[in-house]
């Protein structure tokens, strides 16, 4: 007996929620960024599962594009974090409050 496709979707939902909670409770920018990667991955898992449910490969192609965008996002995001660290000597999200009134 194979695994119902919904189990994969539930697993992806759980991973996504873990990522969301991580972004909300962590303050280290790098760890928050890793949690964003977790969320992107869980969405990829959902796309691949639906690709299997629908019997075509378009979901996998979309998932591939998501990976490309994630790679671009990581390059720019980490460069921003390095710059912030140079400016503030910290990667704490609460230290970035230059716009605070």
């Amino acid at each position: 007996m194979a695994v119902p496709a919904g189990y994969y979707l539930a697993l992806a939902a759980a991973l996504f929620v873990i990522g969301v909670v991580g972004v909300l409770i962590r303050r280290n920018l790098i760890v928050m960024f890793m949690c964003v990667e977790l969320m992107l991955n869980s969405v990829n898992l959902t796309l691949v599962t639906f690709s299997r449910i629908n019997g075509n490969l378009e979901g996998q192609v979309l998932s591939f594009f998501v990976m490309v965008v994630a790679a671009a996002e990581v390059t720019v995001g980490l460069a921003l974090i390095v710059n912030l660290f140079r400016l503030k000597a910290s990667t704490d999200a609460d230290d970035v409050d230059a716009l605070r009134a």
Binding site: M1, A2, P4, A5, G6, A10, A13, I53
Partner: peptide
């Protein structure tokens, strides 16, 4: 996930 949790979605 709900609609696909049944055994017929394997």
């Amino acid at each position: 996930a709900g609609p696909y949790l049944g055994a017929d979605s394997a």
